[in-house]
Write a protein that binds this DNA or RNA. Structure first.
Lengths: 268, 268
DNA sequence: TACCCTAGCGTACGACGTAAGGAGTTGTCT
DNA sequence: AGACAACTCCTTACGTCGTACGCTAGGGTA
């Protein structure tokens, strides 16, 4: 159940993160030819992280996937923390870095957000990683670069856009987290979403019989107008999460378009 | 470096979470008197989590703080996962559950958000916990209840408010995460924020000399108009994070006030 | 008094990250 | 060609983790 915190030593992570992949004719010097590459280790680790739902990323598991002992990995990677930094940046390479053909910046921002949500849903462990760390690697940086490129079309200033960018990342990561939760939860019991929620509700009713009296507002929020069925394909919770993202995006982009986003006076 | 994922078995966590604290004259039956209480274990664990910056929450550490061996804890708590669920809900008890005197719902929502950010900044490990889990415990539930009570003053419907609530949580958690990062990072090197960033920038310049050409938009975003000094008290990054939260709140509450938040047609 | 339920502890097991050092391979230099 | 040095990979081992198991001993109830 242990997970990770992306606490790799930046001084050791960064040369690996920004390593030149193209330089194929790299010096090699004496010694046996390496049987592995950093890329191989990274993609094996991504595979392990994707499979073992959150926790089971261990050096031994990665090594086994490569047919090697755990200690062999330390030839390519300084330690587990740095490996986590590498796989975190690595998955961001899956995103389309350059402008897809979108009509206008609003559509482009929306597409950017949906791509990023999809990425985090594919690799939910990534949402656990970047704690106590700024942007470190090239692929994550490219994601930011692509967003800013889109947003500059609005003509807004850097101070405003910095805030907009922050809010966008919070919305995307929060949404992805909710969706990932919604997907993982029923998987454990292998029941349908409805069954899972019914079981949970029954449990709650037994432990807290007076729930409705103690939390009337929550009852109202959950109950009112909730047909409680998704569109048949997307589970209900996930559908809700995506709607919430749409709302957040809409109000933010409205504000940006209207130019009503305030910048604090400089002397503040 | 291991952290946690809040994967406690709900069937075992929930009776503990919702235990009746008031019932002092609880049955006890034969056997030696319990030397500890669940509350004592929980608050010791919260202390350990606060001290050992993210990682060092171990059963042995909690036990040592209580003058007990690790195995003694298993009398009160089924396992570590469930203990994590307990301390996660436990810290939410620090919040004022009931309406503080705020003039109007906008001020009240803002106060709610700031209180919650402050809570997560005090206990940054809590941001790591709630992965793959919905609201489970009474204190977290009370936080939601308080928010909904405020928002109902707007007269908006449940479908709209569900989305607003989601966005608010994403903003708060994202902001708190950024602030927590900003506080932890320089602590490690024990230098000032400026020095830390200067060091990081030098490192980056050495590893990626062509950064400015590869990421011009990022350079523009970071550079333009950034006096790069906080107000002297609050560090720069934290100041930025709070401004971003303010922007996010403003646009969201503007949208709510204007009634422009769309609800998808029911048949969808 | 007899009983038995239960709190707390000691021991132990398997998994984890990784330090240390040895074995074997391969380039470069004399 | 031969010697050396650099390098990969493995074995072994240490300390820490969560926790299963079984014991001791204390204190209600009968």
């Amino acid at each position: 159940m242990a997970v990770f915190a992306g606490q790799g030593d930046a001084a050791r992570s960064m040369p690996l993160l920004w390593r030149e992949k193209g330089a194929a004719g790299h010096r090699h010097g004496p010694g046996p030819k390496p049987g592995l590459t950093v890329d191989a280790v990274v993609s094996a680790a991504i595979g392990v992280a994707d499979d073992a739902n959150v926790a089971g990323l261990s050096m031994r598991a990665v090594a086994e996937r490569l047919g090697v002992t755990a200690m062999a990995l330390y030839t390519y990677v300084p330690g587990k923390n740095e490996l986590v930094d590498l796989i975190y940046d690595g998955v961001h390479a899956e995103l389309p870095t350059d402008g897809r053909p979108a009509s206008g910046w609003r559509a482009a921002v929306t597409a950017w957000a949906e791509d990023l949500v999809a990425l985090y849903v594919r690799h939910p462990w990534a949402l656990q990683v970047s704690f106590a760390r700024p942007v470190l690697g090239p692929h994550e940086q490219a994601v930011l670069e692509a967003l800013v490129r889109i947003l500059r079309e609005t003509g807004a200033g850097a101070e405003v856009l910095r805030r907009v960018v922050s809010v966008l990342f919070h919305l995307v990561r929060g949404t992805a987290r909710t969706i990932a939760e919604a997907r993982i939860a029923p998987t454990a019991g292998s029941t349908s979403e409805q069954e899972w929620w019914a079981g949970r509700a029954a449990q709650l009713a037994e432990v807290v019989p007076d729930f409705a009296e103690r939390f009337p507002q929550t009852m109202w929020l959950a109950g009112a107008g909730a047909a409680r069925t998704g569109d048949g394909q997307t589970p209900y919770l996930e559908h809700e999460a995506r709607e919430a993202l749409a709302v957040g995006l809409a109000v933010l982009l409205d504000g940006l378009e209207a130019g009503t986003i305030a910048v604090p006076s400089r002397g503040r």
